[in-house]
């Protein structure tokens, strides 16, 4: 807000159809999802239609924003708005994950010890589940899902930690190239990041298959299975989204959309990528390791 001059070029976008398309696509998708979850066969197709519309929306909305950016309609103030917006969006995502981490901590440190007879609520054990010993991992006094082997930390998860941390380094390398207007470094760094990200997702998929087939560790394996799949699943979903975003950014980098001074989209995706990286560290420590 340094000078008044800057403000005479306030940018306000023209009326846009995308928000309303976004509303319709969300409504259709979720309506279909309710039907699908309650055994109505057409539900799946409605979900698919809604998601297609949603993809069309993302494509169209971002196309508009990119073309506005390329035709130099944005000023420093708009750029700052975008940055702040992305920052607070990531903050809200942090709290979304916090709900699941909170659930994990609550169950491990409070709920299970109670069920196991600890504290003044220990009477629960005497009355309901007097065979139950509290321990982690646990599938509860009802032994839901049958016997299972918990997922170890030092196999695939350790490799995945290495992969994601490296991808954090490669995206910084790409950013470093971008800041020097070195397109070759930028593209190579992004390609390496995407490759590492996809490799991560592939390993994660393999880990799930292994858990289901060899360890009998399923989503139904009591509260261990619930927290394990919920936390790693939502994280994996975020990595996948991040990889798609990186691919979009790679395409734009190849077209030369970014310059050392104008690359909000690149930074937004980079922040997002670091965010999934940090969440993974939390997962590795609290879900796999301890």
């Amino acid at each position: 807000m340094s000078s008044t001059d800057q403000h005479t070029t306030y940018f306000i976008p023209d009326p846009s159809p995308w928000p309303i398309i976004g509303m319709v696509s969300l409504l259709v998708t979720l309506f279909g999802a309710v039907l699908a979850m309650n055994g109505v066969v057409v539900g799946k197709f409605i979900v698919f239609g809604g998601l297609l519309l949603f993809a069309y929306l993302l494509f169209g909305w971002f196309r508009d924003v990119i073309s506005e950016n390329l035709s130099d309609k944005y000023n420093a103030q708009v750029d700052r708005s975008f940055r702040m917006g992305m920052f607070w969006f990531i903050a809200s995502e942090v709290f979304f994950f916090l709900a699941f981490f909170g659930a994990l901590f609550y169950i491990r440190n409070i709920a299970l010890p109670w069920l196991g007879g600890e504290g003044y609520l220990g009477a629960t054990k005497e009355i309901l589940y007097n065979q139950f010993e509290s321990a982690w991992p646990s599938h509860g006094p009802g032994q839901l899902g049958g016997e299972f082997i918990p997922m170890g930390a030092w196999g695939i998860p350790a490799i995945n930690t290495f992969l994601l941390l490296s991808s954090g380094a490669t995206i910084t390398w790409a950013h470093w190239g971008l800041k020097q207007d070195n397109q070759k470094t930028l593209v190579r760094g992004l390609m390496a990041t995407i490759a590492l990200g996809l490799l991560f997702v592939a390993f994660q998929a393999y880990e799930y298959i292994h858990a289901y087939e060899a360890l009998n560790l399923t989503l139904q394996s009591g509260v261990y299975g619930s927290t394990f799949y919920m936390l790693t699943g939502f994280h994996g979903f975020h990595v996948t989204m991040g990889a798609i975003m990186l691919m979009a950014i790679l395409g734009r980098s190849m077209k030369g959309h970014f310059s050392a001074h104008n690359h909000f989209a690149f930074e937004a995706v980079a922040w997002y990528w670091h965010f999934v990286d940090v969440v993974w560290l939390g997962l590795f420590i609290f879900v796999y390791w301890f």
């Binding site: 659930a103 609550y106 169950i107 709920a111 509860g140 839901l144 509260v223 619930s226």
Partner: peptide, 15 residues
Amino acid sequence: GTSFFDAAGGGDPVL
């Protein structure tokens, strides 16, 4: 089939 809020699976409705 998760059991976040089901004591039989080690969860807790109070959560």
